[in-house]
Simulated scan of single mutants.
Amino acid sequence: MFKDRHPVLIAAFWMVGALFSFMAMAVSGRELSADFTTYQILFFRSLLGVFLIGTLVAYSGWGQLRTNRVGGHLMRNIAHFGGQYGWFYALAFIPLAEVIAIEFTTPVWTALLAWMLLGERLTLPRLTALFFGIAGLLLILRPGLETLHPATLAILFGAVGYAMSYIQTKSLAATETPLCILFYMTLIQLPFGMIPSLIDWKTPELHTLPWILVVGVTAMSAHYCMARAFKLADATVVVPMDFMRLPLIALVGYLFYDEQIDLPVALGAGLMLAGNLINIRAEQRKAPLRSQALTALRSPE
């Protein structure tokens, strides 16, 4: 069906799947928060994920799960679980659009952590992206004008957790397959959610089962769709599509939860998007130069 289509168009279809997955995951997380703790929601998510990813691994080969980097997987998933906890906790207390907008600060923290931990250079475009990102965050939070809800701080720290997990993922990707990383993600995070859940366990009732299924399936489908989109199109195409999550989730919040669309949140997210695009454009311009330099080094002349 899609073999004669332009790759960017196919990437757009995958991003539609990612956007709907993220929105469905946010709504299901909000609905489940009325009945379950955040730990229990994360436990259900990981439990379904183990079966879904396990099925894919069984189809593509169990050999890819052999690893000498258990410590790296553990570090990644401690950070990622913290990010997930902040995200799902915040869904219960603050507007959906604010959760997504603050989550978009993840590239800011990723650049800072890569500079501090990996020694990556903070180039002018990266510094520009940092400036726009922090300015956007301040516009969203408006410190001093309003009392910050603890859930706001939770998603802010969650974004830092996501950034730390992205850095560790970059390291793991050199030796591990994506399915290997995802499988250990669900397997390691399963007890992280299960053990605290047992302290205040609540048996799911029939009306919660569809939401549990949605949160488990969309958690996997969102990342799978984004990975397929990035494989087909440049980040300059995919990232603006991802930022469409904000107006879409704001519309969902308005229609289903009577949440008002906050102009400062939208403007702050716009600043973050502008900074990201400036940085991505600069990285793309450098890529051909690096390729030319490598070609020259390999040339026998």
Rank of each mutant, 00 (worst) to 15 (best):
A282Y: 09
T236M: 12
D200P: 01
R121F: 05
L145C: 02
P7F: 10
L251F: 13
A250W: 06
I188V: 05
E98D: 07
L56M: 12
F104Y: 06
I102T: 13
G71Y: 05
L255A: 13
P300S: 10
T110F: 11
D200G: 06
V215S: 10
F81E: 13
C225V: 00
E146G: 03
A154H: 02
R30Q: 02
T147S: 11
L179S: 08
L65C: 13
S165A: 14
L232M: 14
A26V: 02
L112H: 08
N279Q: 14
Y166E: 01
T295G: 05
A101M: 06
T55L: 08
V238A: 09
L206Y: 06
P264T: 05
G119R: 10
T218N: 05
G119H: 13
A26P: 01
W62D: 00
G72I: 00
A58Y: 07
W115S: 11
L118V: 00
G144T: 04
I94Q: 09
W109R: 04
P288N: 08
A296H: 12
G158M: 08
L52K: 12
L118R: 04
T110K: 06
T152A: 13
G144E: 12
F131Y: 05
A114P: 01
A79N: 06
V239I: 15
I278C: 13
I102H: 08
F88R: 12
W14R: 00
P150S: 07
S28N: 04
Q84M: 15
V108L: 15
A92S: 14
D262P: 01
V70W: 12
